[in-house]
Simulated scan of single mutants.
Amino acid sequence: MYQTLAAVLLVFGFSTAAFAAPLKLVVLGDSLSAGYQLPADDAFPAQLQAALEKQGHDVEVVNAGVSGDTTADGLARLDWSVGPDAKAVIVELGANDALRGLPPEKTRENLSEIVSRLTDRNVKVLVAGMLAPRNLGEDYASRFDPIFADIARIHGAMLYPFFLQGVAMKPELNLADGMHPTGEGVSIIVQNMLPAVEDLIKRAGSS
């Protein structure tokens, strides 16, 4: 009888594991991650999911990017953009703050609140950094650029220093506006970020 019960429990255990839901990773961002003017399959979340699946990860990557969003906009929609089933979040916000010349202190405050609220929910966070346009001056850049590393350090989050690494300022990898990556540009971003994202989902899966 006990052997039969053990066998049933063993089979049940394998069955529930087989039907376990994939780990949910949300990309909370702006047009850079949302896939501005790109086919859905070329957007960052879609390409990232394909790359993770190729590496054998069972992950659902959710595109929670909204074109034009600032850190204030991201904070305002945080609770409904990142549902209770999310285990990990990539925060890609701040570019529009800089483009609009918003006070870096406010960007810091908003981003800190976003990451703080996510970590309080035991959601693992990867902060994707951004750099201020140099035409805003060195003073602005010196106040803006360090925000992302500081926030990651303070809240124990992960950091990817510059989301557009390897793509920024390369015309062949950006749309005609010179700011948004093409599908090929997104592919480079994904490959550059992949090790950090794999670390993120490893941490999320073990929490």
Rank of each mutant, 00 (worst) to 15 (best):
M1I: 10
Y2C: 11
A6G: 04
V11A: 14
G13L: 11
S15W: 14
P22R: 00
K24Q: 15
V27E: 12
S33P: 14
G35D: 09
G35M: 04
L38W: 01
L38F: 04
L38T: 01
D42Q: 15
F44L: 12
Q47E: 08
H57Y: 00
H57A: 02
D58N: 12
D58W: 00
S67L: 03
D69V: 03
D69P: 10
T71V: 08
L78G: 09
D79V: 06
S81F: 06
V91I: 02
L93C: 05
N96M: 07
L99C: 01
E105Y: 10
K106W: 08
K106L: 15
R108I: 01
S112T: 06
S112H: 05
S116F: 09
T119P: 10
D120E: 15
V123E: 14
V123P: 13
L126M: 12
L131D: 15
R134Y: 07
N135Q: 05
L136D: 11
A141T: 04
A157C: 05
M158E: 12
M158G: 11
M158V: 01
P161K: 00
F163E: 06
A168L: 14
N174V: 14
D177T: 01
H180A: 09
T182S: 15
G183Y: 02
G185K: 00
V197K: 01
E198Q: 09
K202L: 15
